[in-house]
Structure formats: structure tokens, C-alpha cells
Amino acid sequence: MPDSPDSPDSIHAPTRALRLGIAGPVGTGKSSLIATLCRTLADRLQIGVVTNDIYTDEDAQMLRAAGVLDPARIRAVETGACPHTAIRDDITANAIAVEDLEADFAPLDLVLVESGGDNLTATFSPALVDAQIFVLDVAGGGDVVRKGGPGIARADLLVVNKIDLAEYVEVDHELMVEQGRDARDGRPVLGLSRKRPETVAALADWVQATLVAHRDGTHEPVDPGPMAPHAHTDGTVHSHEHAAHTP
């Protein structure tokens, strides 16, 4: 059970926001999804953003330039070219940035942590975020969902982004969403285009519902994990942690 937001001795109390990670391959629209969320939710929620771009600041600057949030609420964290490490094996810099945002702008409702674009295997440590969205896009090809990976299979939400472009890249986005549901044992999948308001509303609703669940203690952070549990010939069953990067 996660700490309830108002338990006095919790690391998270009393300013503990919902920490929502946004992962996914490069170019799938993580920053744009964050900008969309800020634009949609800024009048309802107090939001902060931490970005992890490979070259610091590019995403942060893009978000600041988008004017969707007070620039001081957008922090960039350098990852030393280890975006995977920074959200998984050594979350120190990101955890400190999140804690600072929560303290500087208390009380925040929502902190979005954008991972530096990585491959299909990067997922957030549950010690850093309470929930995570994995973002794919139709331009990445219709079969990427079938390739799977921990984020695709077990993130709290899988987003298939840029569905308005599907016809131009000859991808059936509805089939992608369908395959996503199959790969995820029924966990939610959302087709998204910032040009289609009903999809943006669905995304915002999911975030708000997750926030409510986080606050009333019914949301439990789930680790998508780097690899499915599997059996060894000696009979032990376990899951492997991805070996830590040398920084």
C-alpha cells in the first residue's frame, strides 16, 4: 500500500503530489503530451514538470516556450547520457528535482516526469513515480506494439500517439490500440491526437481518475519491470533486474 498523502510521517506528506512518469521511444511525442496535459489541466490542478532530455534543457525549453506552465515549474535534470539509469537504477537526481518542485510550489497535485527518449525497455522505478504512461506513436510502425516490452505490457497507461497521422504512414491505429489491449491483459490503452479534443479529454480524465485513486489510497504503484518473471532450470522463479549502467 502506498503512503497515503496525509500520513504525517510519510516522505510524501503533506505536499505529496501524484508523480506521473512519461516514458517511451524518442520522437513519440512525450513532450507534446506533457504540454497537452498542462494546457488541459492547468486551470484545475497545480502541476510541476521534470524533464530528462539527453541534452539538458531542450525539452524544458520547448515546454517553457509553449507557455503552458510557469517556467519555474519546469526543471531539467542532466542524466549524463544515462536516461535509463536516471529513472531506474539511480533516481537520485530526479527524486531530488521532484522533491524540490513539491516543496517550492506546495501543494502540487501532479508532477510529470519525462524520461529522456529511450528504447522500448526503459521504465520508471516505482520509487520515483506512482504511475507511468508509456507513449508510442503510429509513425513508429504498426508492429511495435506486438514487439512488446515492459512499458508496453505493464505501464499504467499505454498511449498510441499521433493517430491523426495514421493514414499517412499506412498504419491502422485502431488495430494498434486493439493489439495493445491484447498485450496488456486489459490494462488501458488510449489512441491520442492533440488535434482530436475527445482523445485529449480521455487522457485528462485518466490522469484525474489516477490522481483521485492516488489520494484515496486505492492506487498502487506497479512496477512494469524490465523483464517478465521466468523459471530457471534449477526450479527457482525470479525476475532479473536490468544490470545497472555504469554511469
Binding site: 542524466t79 549524463g80 539511480d90 554511469p247
Partner: peptide, 13 residues
């Protein structure tokens, strides 16, 4: 150990 989780990977000395 470089794998000590203290944020060392963000530094280049």
C-alpha cells in the same frame, strides 16, 4: 562503486 545510487552518473568531474 559507480553503481551507488547517489546521482554520480550526472557528473563529469
Amino acid at each position: 562503486d559507480a553503481r551507488l545510487p547517489t546521482g554520480g552518473h550526472t557528473q563529469s568531474g
